[in-house]
Amino acid sequence: MTTAAPIVQLSRRARAPKAMVELNVDGQSVSVPDGTTILGACAALGIEIPTLCYLETLRPVNVCRLCVVEVEGARVLVPSCSRTVEAGMKVKTRSDRVRHTRKMVLELLASSVDLTTTPGANELLTEYDCDPARFGPPAPASAAGVRETRLPGHHTPPNPDFAATIAQPATLDNDLYVRDYGKCVLCYKCVEACGPDHQNTFAIAVAGRGFDAHISTELAVPLPDSACVYCGNCIAVCPTGALMAKSEFDLRARGAWNEACQTITDTICPYCGVGCTLTLHVQDGDIVKATSPLDNAITLGNLCIKGRFGWRYVQQRAGEGGPGADGRG
């Protein structure tokens, strides 16, 4: 008994090399593989483009508009993080229009959002001569939960004495992380990481509209009542510190967070056989945070609750009264 043997694929198919596309950036010629973004082409030339909502492990949502560049022939500026190159494209990354729009984006954000824990924010504000205060003194914080109740399509007329902000109290509703949405630039990264790009838990989404748009659980319930599985993959991608592990938040609150004296060591998570690389941030002999490298092929920077928070037991061994001491098995 034999049947005609269909062709079977035995090994991994080699990908056909991509055609090269030549373009011009700031007067320099560069050839990059088809499908490369303008941002990628700029990186190949060593041209730095500021980004906020872009991350190499996430689908570009191109919402922050900080990475805009000028493409000859285009009516408006284009987001370099998502726009792919085309043959003969002429790109300007430092024109007056580009500088102006980036400056506006930075000023609009800095005047409405707390950027104090956004790495690189101060440098950018200086580089682009920003003066966020020119929109007026920042409006005081709203009471907790108020922003979540605002009606789409309606708003209270502005108070001419203040520039509106999204200032609000931080949400501390669980033991593992803090959501300080007064620092949220609405980059969508956490939503993408929690949702379609990685975790697919969809515990959070952008809710509301316009200036009142915000990150929310369903019905704005506290995190413990939501679908959250505490993987912390949202924390891993947050560019502003709006989402932060409680361990880091508490240390910062005590003024004890000291990145300069932390050691960073890659090891393997002990919790299952997948082999996630775990980057341990150790300060004064204690683990203060666990992350995973974005370029790790297994994790792409992601972990689960056990990997991201399961290290605490190590520090609970030494003294009396830890879980080891009471014979917990």
Partner: peptide, 18 residues
């Protein structure tokens, strides 16, 4: 379950809503 591990020796070290 997601948040716990084997006999809980290690995952007893943190608390979550899970």
């Amino acid at each position: 379950r997601l948040e716990s591990y084997n006999t809980g020796v290690m995952t007893g070290g943190y608390e979550s809503a899970l």
